[in-house]
Nucleic acid binder design. Structure first.
Lengths: 145, 145
DNA sequence: ACCTTGTAGTTAACATGTGAATTACATCTT
DNA sequence: AAGATGTAATTCACATGTTAACTACAAGGT
């Protein structure tokens, strides 16, 4: 088996695919002076409710050192709050603030429109199938074997 | 249409998928003190032959500012060389050196083994189909519409 | 109580991602 | 030839990715 060419390599294809998709969201995020990662953190907290940092990092696919910096930035802008967990001085619960919720709600329509435009170009069925295949790949790699 | 949950969002799925795949390559790259992006640059140059910076950036999916830094690092380690283009003082042709080729050849067997292991876990047919679907997505977004 | 071990989070150091500004050079226009 | 415009590459500033080291705290064993 030959090594794959860069035009047929899974890591590069995943990178490029992510790039073309994110290009649609960047203008929206830039208008609100929010980075892509900060946006992920806010959405996860909005969906899930208050979380500790480790769990939040896992769900948002952000490494702990990055999350530390992101939390600091979001706290300063009062998009999130942090409350120490009683009985364990290490942990803290991170929660989205009303301001943060308001931001997410403000962007929701545009976000929906962007996804609809992607589905229109790529096809809703293909979109679903691609998500399933990506989940399958992630699963195949996480169940050790 | 509801906005997708973070568990069913295309950007997050692409990010996670890339992450689980790259996890297999990182130890190999770390052993040779090469970053993932430096590795991409070397492979593109090895496949394609000498390229100018802009074309190289496109093929390796690296932004110009990053490429400038990567070229500098690879030049210092003599993995690549750079030759000014006659008749245009702005451009330069970047080429992989024999040392760079040797590195790629040294890593080729391990690289192949890693890809084979991925195909074994995920399925060769699924792998091919996923690459096709990613190409389709990239195409659907690049052909303006 | 003390010591070991484990865990949550942070800090440090360096590479890359990202958008904006800048430099160096080409080309076009007049 | 001089000035306007365009292009290739770099630089800047700041955010994140990545690994390793470190701090603070908890839980267990003796």
């Amino acid at each position: 088996m030959l090594p794959p060419s860069t035009r047929r390599s899974l890591p590069m294809a995943l990178l490029r695919a992510r790039e073309v998709i994110m290009a649609h969201f960047r203008p929206m995020l830039a208008r609100h002076d929010i980075t892509e990662q900060q946006w992920r953190v806010l959405r996860v907290l909005a969906e899930t409710g208050p979380l500790e940092a480790t769990e939040l990092a896992n769900r948002a696919s952000i490494l702990p050192p990055s999350l530390t910096r992101i939390i600091k930035a979001l706290e300063e802008r009062e998009f999130i709050s942090r409350n120490k967990v009683k009985d364990d001085g290490r942990r803290a619960l991170l929660a989205i603030s009303p301001t943060g919720v308001a931001l997410i709600e403000e962007l929701a329509p545009e976000r929906t429109a962007i996804y609809e435009a992607i589905e229109k170009r790529y096809g809703a069925a293909e979109h679903e199938r691609l998500l399933d295949m990506l989940d399958g790949l992630i699963q195949s790699e996480s169940t050790e074997g």
